[in-house]
């Protein structure tokens, strides 16, 4: 695999003195989907801005397709498409014109058939002569994507593509991303919806306060940190975990009405069967059983919370 985007020790200090990136190093492989997670103000957008040429990094080096984004900006930028976080579109312009404009500004010759293909894939073809301000919010987001794709970028940046978007459109967006990946496009998306990273990313990076906390394969991350909880609702509340069940890692919650068993999904034996047998033997009557998977969200909150404590 070759690195499509290489970031080494990227730093950004804004004029006011705010240090938005504190030495970020990251390598993104061709054809992968990387999700950058992080709370608001963590530096996600700054990192993207530095790669795309909207901001100039104050330190370190960033290369796209082997080209330095500052020295060799023409080659680097022509490989990149950007879908910004804000819906920045000229309100009175027609969809077709604005998409054509982007292709032109990126120096690519006019190719109506190609643009038609993009607009059809994004279900925008019927709206091609509509003015931007006549479109719904979701349609406007699609126009932003169409613009970003108009010059066949090899790397696509999606800065919070589904912020404030309804569920249906979010699914649509994920499908579009999957299609692009299948076509070989490298995709970097920022989000603070963990669900989104879980659903579409190959790798997940977590940024907090200008530093990259971790980058890991999503599946590895999920197994490594993924634990499952079995929550057993009891008919009669208990004062303490009965001694017959002491061999299990149990805790009582909700005033003794719920028995919580936490176990590793990756382990060979989960021990659930044995727990059930012991409970029956101890005459504990259960009312209901639920399981809960440790989501990326929990991992994320833990991670960001831990650093917060460290910093304090």
């Amino acid at each position: 695999m070759t690195a499509m985007v290489e970031i080494s020790d990227a730093r950004k200090v804004y004029d006011g003195g705010f240090e938005a990136l504190k030495g970020v190093s990251l390598s993104i492989e061709k054809g992968e989907i990387l999700a950058l997670l992080g709370p608001n103000g963590a530096g996600k957008t700054t990192l993207i801005s530095c790669i795309c040429g909207i901001a100039v990094p104050t330190g370190g080096q960033i290369r796209v397709g082997g080209h330095d984004v500052v020295r060799d900006f023409r080659k680097a930028r022509s490989l990149v498409g950007l879908v910004p976080q804000e819906v920045n579109l000229e309100p009175f312009e027609k969809v077709w014109n604005t998409v054509r404009f982007t292709r032109g500004v990126f120096g690519r010759p006019r190719d109506d058939a190609h643009l038609e293909d993009i607009l059809r894939r994004l279900s925008l073809w019927e709206k091609r002569y509509a003015k931007i301000n006549e479109l719904s919010g979701g349609m406007k987001r699609r126009v932003l994507i169409a613009k970003a794709l108009s010059h066949d970028p090899e790397v696509l940046f999606l800065d919070e593509p589904t912020a404030g978007v309804d569920v249906e459109l979010r699914r649509d967006m994920w499908r579009i991303v999957a299609d692009l990946k299948a076509a070989g496009t490298t995709i970097i998306l920022t989000t603070h919806y963990i669900e989104e990273a879980e659903a579409i990313a190959d790798r997940i990076g977590v940024i907090s306060r200008g530093s990259l906390m971790l980058v890991e394969e999503k599946d590895a991350l999920m197994t490594r940190l993924g634990r499952k909880e079995l929550r057993i609702e009891l008919q009669e509340p208990l004062d303490a975990v009965p001694p017959q069940l002491s061999e299990f890692d149990l805790s009582l919650e909700e005033d003794g009405r719920v028995l919580v068993y936490s176990y590793d999904t990756g382990a060979e034996r989960t021990g659930i069967g044995r727990l059930m047998t012991r409970m029956t033997e101890a005459d504990i009557v259960l009312r209901d059983v639920r399981t809960r998977q440790n989501s990326l969200e929990d991992i994320f909150v833990d991670l960001v919370h831990d650093t917060g404590t460290d910093a304090a």
Binding site: C52, R74, V80, L89, E90
Partner: peptide, 16 residues
């Protein structure tokens, strides 16, 4: 106008 409505991002990220 592009500065005001934000579409300037496109010019800044273009290879020009």
């Amino acid at each position: 106008f592009p500065k005001f409505i934000g579409t300037i991002y496109e010019l800044l990220s273009a290879p020009i």
